[in-house]
Nucleic acid binder design. Structure first.
Lengths: 104, 104
DNA sequence: ACATTATATCTAATATTCGCGATATGTCAA
DNA sequence: TTGACATATCGCGAATATTAGATATAATGT
């Protein structure tokens, strides 16, 4: 867990919002995965387009942001057909919360 | 509590270390306030010079860093004669810990 | 095979941060 | 009141971040 990389990733209004929005995906985004015939478990993941719509920034920027958050260990992604679904990496977030509770 | 400003302030190895060092000032820094005749309560504060020595960076940079950390609400400062003593602002740090425990 | 759609990557202009030396300010001691 | 010391501020070039348009890749449907 690279704390510096994590704090840099969180040092931006939009990126911090993405993390917060993804805490309650069904509340903050439209239903996901309606395109699929068979039922797939998206684990609360949200596709890039939905995040882009919510954030109101360009596609390339949101893609870059999601990559930064993933590289920092804050998000996980899974590709399903044409779509990539991003969800929170609760493991890292719990470790971070732990860090603040004890080290800081 | 401006979270973005806080995360920016913590997005630097030296600045994050300063916050950690100041959790246990007597362990990480030489005894403070030896210059004073009468006993003054420094509340665990450490002077800029000691922080500069520990961090191994220039005086102007450490002064700037301490200012950033203070503006973000993470540090408090108190001037005593020629020296300025910096200590943690536990109120903000507790609020931040709370944020991670609940919002994130 | 080809057009369409979703996402990722490349490129580049602009903005911000980093970290230092130089200089200013404030404080004390002689 | 002058000199010495601690800290703060200024100014700057270098490095890095921001953000978007253009383009590439990957998957799907016809």
């Amino acid at each position: 867990m690279d704390k510096i990389e994590i704090f840099k990733a969180l040092s931006n209004e939009t990126r911090l919002s993405i993390i917060e929005w993804l805490k309650e995906p069904e509340k903050n985004f439209p239903p996901q995965g309606g395109h699929f015939d068979d039922v797939v478990d998206l684990k609360g993941g949200v596709c890039v387009g939905s995040i882009r719509d919510k954030a109101g920034i360009s596609q390339s920027t949101v893609s870059h942001y999601l990559d930064m958050l993933q590289k920092a260990g804050l998000l996980l992604s899974e590709r399903r057909g044409k779509w990539t679904y991003y969800r929170r990496n609760e493991e890292t977030l719990a470790a971070l919360s732990d860090y603040f509770g004890h080290e800081i």
